[in-house]
Computed example of a mutant assay.
Amino acid sequence: MKNEEWSLSRRQVLRRVGGVTAATLLASVTTQVATAAAAVPSSKRFDLTDPSDEWFREILLSETRIMQSFAFDNTHKHLYTAQLIQGGILLPGETQAYTAADRSKNGDLCITRLDWQGSIVGRMYLKGFGHGVSIGVEPSGSGAYLWTETDSVPDSANDGYGTKVARFKFANGTVIRPDSYQVTRFDPVPSSDHNSVAIDPVNNRLVHRYRTDGSSWKFSLYDLASFKAGTFTPLATVTQPAVLTGVTFQGYTSMGMYLYTVDGTAYTYDANGNQTSTSNTYLTSVDWNTGAVYERRLSEAGKSLFYREPEGLAIQIPDSANPGAARLFLGFGSEASLTDTDKKASFYYKDLLV
């Protein structure tokens, strides 16, 4: 944390700077039906009532548009973020600059690589991939492979979302397309849309979120090595819990036996800049074996941010020699004021495993 009175206890400090407080807790246990090819071994879970620590507050990324998702390379101590490309950017090989709406419709993404001090150390561009709802990172040798959605198709709102899954090596300064030679594409659920992925770095598993029949949302959990080999036999598949119906879904991740999701929207303001809403950011944990919601809690992490839109979840392992000491990270996009709308990114984490 930054600029805090360290004479206070850690728990007091956490409560002051954006943890979940007793007055704002909301627990909901909803039973859902899950179809599982095999039981997912039991594991510890993150306690969602644990107050959140601040890691970075309002750091700059490569683009001025809001961060959509993020993921960690825990081996090389890198943070990767995904944003839609801003309007007016002319990429190598392009003959014209496109508007922000064009970039959204096409599903054009910017991936920024940062070190764990918050400095930008690389970027690459993905044309025609999707919205960037969630990404995954797979460390390999001296670099890393990224997992994203791909083969973007615009929806009714003219926002592009992936219909397949992609794996490619991060290459600083490059521009790639779904059919680029660097990209391996996977189609685990043919005819699905709104595909996205996340990685459980502790257990080397991949989560695939997708929609079928235009309305049915599901999550499938795979062994990462088997998925890469083209064997699409999930360890478990769960239907998106009913408690997430009608909310603004903002990301997910997984560790062990639990799937974690985040939903919510940004603060609203009146014409004079007065805040007219409070936090509606919720974290939810779901049991992979039953599909039941284990815990759902209101989060006030980053409460004092201006704008404050939740954008993504990811698992960080601070010490690769001790994967059991993992952190559940929550990201936010924000802006300085009603007139200064260039987006920045902030990150908070929970580390109490029970």
Rank of each mutant, 00 (worst) to 15 (best):
D53N: 08
S191N: 14
F219Y: 15
D179W: 02
L109K: 08
K343Q: 15
L61P: 05
I317G: 06
H78D: 05
D319S: 08
G312M: 10
T30A: 14
A34D: 13
S180M: 03
G302S: 03
F168K: 03
A326T: 04
G264H: 09
V29K: 15
D73Y: 09
R113W: 00
W55S: 04
Q240K: 12
N272S: 15
R65C: 11
K44F: 06
A97Q: 12
T231N: 12
A23G: 13
T265L: 01
G136F: 03
T30E: 10
Q68C: 07
Y125D: 04
T253M: 03
G302W: 00
L313T: 09
Q182M: 11
H208P: 02
E94W: 15
T184H: 04
T163D: 00
S196L: 05
S9G: 11
I135S: 10
K105Y: 05
D263L: 00
Q12D: 14
Y258W: 09
R297V: 12
P154Y: 00
L79M: 15
V262M: 08
L328N: 08
W288R: 01
T148P: 11
N322Q: 09
A225N: 11
T95D: 13
K228A: 03
L221F: 07
M255L: 05
T239W: 02
S52P: 02
A292D: 15
V183G: 01
Y181W: 07
Q32V: 09
L61V: 12
D263K: 02
G136S: 07
Y252W: 10
T341K: 14
A37M: 13
A171Y: 00
D115C: 10
E58L: 05
K350S: 09
T21W: 08
L8Y: 10
V207N: 01
Y252C: 04
A225E: 04
L26P: 02
K169N: 04
T284E: 05
F72Q: 03
D50R: 12
F249W: 12
D319I: 03
P323C: 09
F306Y: 15
